[in-house]
Simulated scan of single mutants.
Amino acid sequence: MKLIHEINLPDARDMAVSPSGNTVAVCQPGSSRLSIIDAFTGTVLKVISFSQQPVSVTYSKDGMLAYVILSGHSIVEFFASDWRETKRIPYTFLESKIVTGIDNRRAYCVSNRGVHDIDVVNSTVKSHNIQSPQRSLALSPDNRLLYIVFSGGVIVFDVEKWEKAFEIRVESAERISLDPKGKRAYVGLRGFADVKVIDLSSGELVGSILSYGHVADITLDMEGLYFFILTINRANMAVYRIGDEVEKIEDVTIGSAPDCIVVAPDNRSVYVSNRSVVKKFEML
């Protein structure tokens, strides 16, 4: 991994890379700001201030729109071309990760009230109660299922029927990442140096990846060939090659309080936030 840029952004937390790979949006809840970064130069193109804390950001699949969750307040929609606000959807319970569907009209997130389906066209929110959801969720590649992390494992939620399909038990689950084909889920554990690997066709645990540090965030590359783990106490990013065997290939120092990791659509660029800077790496 080669360090390309290091951008000073106090309290940099959740991030999203545009589908084109041209920009990176970064939430800074401590200062109630969202910063837009030029992915090629590392310069800050725009800073948007809010009266509430931005806690999650994502782009629509076509890259035309972007959505920001303001904690306990609303979802804000922007034109991603110039970051002009187009609408706000009031909803006081939203406070965690947001993902978008392929039809560019729906987004999903979780809160302490459960899971929420946001119709961004009609500005409505539909909810379903789930016990003890965490801040992590993932949408299946076919957009039919949400994988929602809760304290006892992963809830598999059918978004078409809007009901829980089944549950996979993984104690102390906190983070989740799906492989691009939707065959396996990787679940990081709260307070443990361990990531569980789940076969999604059977719901069975099929392996573990030792992280050698408490897990802060996890992700896979766009092809499911490489796996990345941010660890809190080691303050590093561990890189693994996924094949018949899981092979650790590199440790990269990140600095204190690593928080979020995102792989760009080019499948080479990797962005990491650690609550003080955003670092861009390239895979060699």
Rank of each mutant, 00 (worst) to 15 (best):
S172T: 07
V187Y: 11
H5E: 05
G255Q: 02
V115P: 01
A66C: 05
K181H: 07
S172C: 05
Y212T: 05
I89L: 00
V187W: 11
I102H: 01
V120K: 10
T231P: 02
F93D: 01
V149F: 07
N112A: 06
V149Y: 08
G30N: 03
E85P: 05
M283C: 07
S208I: 14
L137S: 02
A235W: 12
R113T: 05
G243I: 06
S74W: 08
A235M: 12
D266W: 09
L45C: 13
V154C: 14
S140N: 10
Y186G: 03
I261N: 05
P90V: 01
K87D: 13
L45H: 08
V76I: 14
I261R: 09
S60W: 14
S31F: 13
S202E: 13
S211N: 06
G30Q: 00
C109F: 04
K2T: 13
R169K: 12
V55N: 10
S35Y: 01
K196M: 15
R241K: 06
V17M: 01
Y147W: 10
E6A: 15
I229L: 09
P54R: 08
L225T: 08
T86C: 15
A80F: 00
R275M: 10
V55Y: 04
R184I: 13
R169L: 08
S276V: 09
K126C: 00
T231N: 00
D194E: 13
L189I: 11
F78W: 12
I249M: 15
L200I: 12
V252R: 05
V270S: 01
E95R: 02
V159C: 12
T231V: 00
R113M: 04
V26S: 02
H73A: 15
V44P: 08
V206R: 09
I232H: 07
R175D: 03
G255R: 03
F78C: 14
K280F: 09
C27W: 01
A66D: 09
Y271C: 03
M15S: 09
A173L: 08
F93S: 02
P265K: 12
L189T: 15
V120C: 14
K126V: 02
L65E: 10
F150I: 15
L139A: 07
R169F: 08
A264V: 06
L178Q: 01
N129K: 00
I242P: 13
R135Y: 05
A39H: 05
F40E: 09
D11T: 11
R105F: 12
P10N: 05
A138H: 02
A25C: 04
A66H: 04
D14Y: 15
L178H: 01
D103Q: 07
V195C: 13
S51A: 15
V120H: 06
F150L: 15
E171Q: 09
R184A: 14
I176L: 07
F40A: 07
V156A: 10
A193M: 09
I118Q: 00
K2C: 06
A16E: 04
V159M: 11
F192R: 12
I89M: 01
S208L: 13
I48V: 09
L205H: 12
F50W: 03
S172D: 10
V215S: 07
T100S: 05
S18Q: 07
G255W: 08
D251A: 14
V239W: 04
G63H: 01
P54T: 03
R184S: 11
V187Q: 14
R234F: 04
S256R: 12
V278N: 09
G72V: 04
